[in-house]
Design a protein around this nucleic acid. Structure first.
Length: 641
RNA sequence: GCCGGAGUAGCUCAGCUGGCAGAGCGAUUCCUUCGUAAGGAAUAGGUCGAGGGUUCAAAUCCCUCCUCCGGCUCCA
């Protein structure tokens, strides 16, 4: 039979050949170095047999995947160390992850002090350099081994069609495992345990609660140190830290999950709002406003009541014998505006936008700075379209969102999320809606991840995710196709055929919410906002109080151009004023002293420490206006000089 | 909501084997009027997250709650 190698070439191998056999066919050196392999992209142990036509990659200690293999072995070392110290611990699963590994265990209470002892034990196991050996046993034998471990038995039951299963054994300790692993524990150069948390068996909160220990491992101590250093550096990007330093926002203890925008933060938000207004205008949206407070009955026919209230995610209460609630989404109100008048097919698409403030009772453990809050304002919008307009509407929206994100230089992960368990509407409708989203993604040439079962309750969703400083993904923009709510509310337009038809609702948010987007922006720019977004764009620093008057005249000239400018009038040395302006992340500072006042010029310094002296004020103002209006990302006046 | 960690001055943090609440930065006042990343001095500033308990005595030990951080689940 034939297998395909990464370079596209084909290799004939005997039937029943393993990955390792393939490696030896390629060359004896490679054969000896083989740690594991990939069959059709999936990481497998080197003993795995290949099938005809398989795409084969050989994993050695030089491969990117080697770290994954190493970390899987580190998870085993952790589990062995844990059971040496706590024989009562029951093991469940312990896979490698992108950043390291975890092991979910139960039957043992752990806190951080235990971790240090376990790490010491792990170091001993690594130092002993035990061989890691593969062991094949029958499924029945395995079930006997795990007579008192229901979790491992469940895993074995999932493999019901397999006669034999594999264990990996080191120093007489064994774990049910498909591999692959490194040859011996000594190959793990450096390991550390990072935290303890709880998790759910098979990720389902209805199942048992387990204890998860997260850790990571590297081939060398130096690599681990780099990793820990990068983590420390990421903290410097944290929007909560920068938000405090720049006085952008606060989330006081009395308002969990509800951000208070300070003047500096509100300056940024206003710029974002105005930017989105122009985009909504371009897309043909009419701005509306709808109330936060409504009777709960508003959300019963749409399905929101069931989806949010029943999950405890909606703020609702009884008042004067009537149930009221705060809106968790804007769709129902927008649908009401649509329903309030008659529409002809000629009127469609009809588009409403709103900076709609919604409230959701997110679980307390989920709140995270501006990235996950309970009160948020979405740059929401709903387009009511005819079936023949769906795909074009989605494509056009996606195209604008792409423009916006590239404006900011944001890297985006596209996701297509499909029908989940608690959805409303028929499968046919969902398929139609999902096809429309997929078609738009593909016609825009966008790569996306398919996330099955993750959609909104009323329709499938394209999610646009950004990463935060520590690598977590957060959905910002979204485009959703909804055939359900228009039917449920009996929204209609009169067609060319003089019959009533249901429109389709396209739900979309370009930035997502101002809260989350601001959080992402702060971390993306590390607080060094482009001129157009910077809370203060220019600070004028008089060399001494003697030039305070001239400093104010310079400020007035910048004010007149609509720039956000302030004068540093504190009784400080110039060096101190410059230091402070850098700490405050000012894009530009202007330094004026007797020399400048005499000839009517200024000295300019930007956040990169670039300097220009003898600058004509008009030229500087003209440049700033252009830089702002073109939304350029970095200050470039001094470069341009 | 669950597991682990944390909450002391505006900020960052020390003190926590129980015995008079501390530092640096910032703020205020005074001196200094300064040319490209911190001038000097003095002063003010705290219900030690909240409530309860143990004790002669609690920031420190115990309990309950609140909030935050990391992870799980969930999501814009």
């Amino acid at each position: 039979m034939t297998v395909v190698l990464p370079d596209g070439s084909e290799l004939d191998v005997p039937a029943g050949a393993t990955v390792e056999d393939v490696a030896f066919e390629i060359g004896p050196g490679l054969g000896r170095d083989t740690v594991a392999g990939k069959i059709d992209g999936e990481l497998v142990e080197k003993q795995a047999t290949v099938h005809d036509g398989a795409r084969i990659e050989i994993v050695t200690d030089q491969s990117d995947e080697y770290l994954t293999v190493l970390r899987h072995s580190a998870a085993h070392v952790f589990a062995q160390a844990l059971q040496r110290l706590h024989p009562e611990a029951t093991l469940t699963i312990g896979p490698p992850t992108d950043e390291g590994f975890y092991y979910d265990v139960t039957g043992v209470d752990l806190d951080e002090e235990d971790l240090a002892a376990i790490e010491d034990e792990m170091d001993d196991i690594i130092a002993a350099d035990y061989d890691i050996e593969r062991e094949v046993r029958s499924r029945e034998e395995a079930k006997e081994i795990y007579a008192d471990n229901e979790y491992k038995r469940q895993i074995l039951d999932d493999e019901a069609d397999e006669e034999e299963v594999t264990f990996y054994v080191q120093d007489g300790w064994r774990d049910l495992c498909q591999g692959p692993h490194v040859e011996s524990t000594g190959e793990i150069g450096a390991v550390t345990l990072l935290n303890i948390s709880s998790s759910y068996w098979r990720g389902d909160e209805d199942n048992d609660t387990l204890t998860r220990v997260n850790g990571t491992a590297f081939a060398s101590e130096a690599d681990l140190e780099d990793f820990l250093e990068r983590r420390e550096e990421a903290k410097e990007r944290d929007h909560r830290k920068i938000g405090r330093e720049m006085d952008l926002f606060s989330i006081p203890d009395h308002s969990p999950g509800a951000a208070h925008y300070h003047p500096n933060g509100m300056r940024i938000r206003r710029e974002l709002e105005e930017y989105i207004r122009t985009k909504n205008d371009e897309l043909g949206y009419e701005e509306v406003w709808t109330p936060e407070l409504n009777k709960a009955e508003l959300w019963k026919p749409t399905g929101h009541y069931d989806a949010f209230k029943e999950q405890g995610e909606m703020f609702a209460w009884e008042q004067d014998e009537t149930e009221y609630g705060l809106k968790p989404m804007n769709c129902a109100n927008h649908a009401h505006i649509f329903a309030d008048s008659q529409h002809s097919y000629r009127d469609l698409p009809l588009r409403f936008s709103e900076f709609g403030t919604v409230y959701r009772n997110e679980q307390s453990g989920e709140l995270s700075g501006l990235l996950r809050v309970r009160g948020l304002t979405q740059d929401d919008g709903h387009a009511f379209v005819r079936p023949d307009q769906i795909e074009e509407e989605i494509r056009q929206t996606l195209s604008v969102i792409e423009d916006i994100y590239s404006q900011f230089g944001l890297e985006i992960i596209y996701k297509l999320e499909t029908k989940g368990d608690n959805s409303v509407g028929s499968d046919e409708i969902w398929e139609q809606a999902t096809d429309a989203l997929r078609g738009a993604l593909e016609s825009e040439g966008l790569e996306y991840d398919l996330e099955a079962g993750e959609a909104a309750f009323y329709g499938p969703k394209i999610g646009l995710d950004a990463r935060d400083a520590i690598g977590r993904e957060w959905t910002i923009g979204t485009v959703q196709a909804d055939f359900n709510i228009p039917q449920r509310l009996d929204l209609t337009y009169v067609g060319e055929d003089n019959e009533e038809h249901h429109p389709v609702m396209i739900h979309r948010a370009l930035l997502g919410s101002f809260e989350r987007f601001m959080g992402v922006m702060i971390e993306h720019f590390k607080g060094n906002f482009p001129l157009w977004l910077a809370p203060t764009q220019v600070r004028v620093l008089p060399v001494s109080d003697d030039t305070l008057g001239y400093a104010h005249r310079v400020k007035n000239a910048l004010d007149d151009a609509g720039l956000r400018v302030e004068v540093e009038d504190r009784d400080w040395t110039v060096g101190r004023k410059i230091r402070q302006a850098h700490d405050d992340r000012l894009p530009y500072m202007v330094i004026v002293g007797g020399d400048e006042e005499e000839v009517g010029t200024v000295s300019v310094r930007d956040r990169f420490e670039n300097e220009a002296s003898g600058v004509e004020l008009d030229a500087f103002v003209d440049h700033l206006v252009d830089e702002r209006d073109e939304k350029r990302t970095e200050p470039d006046f001094v470069d341009a000089e």
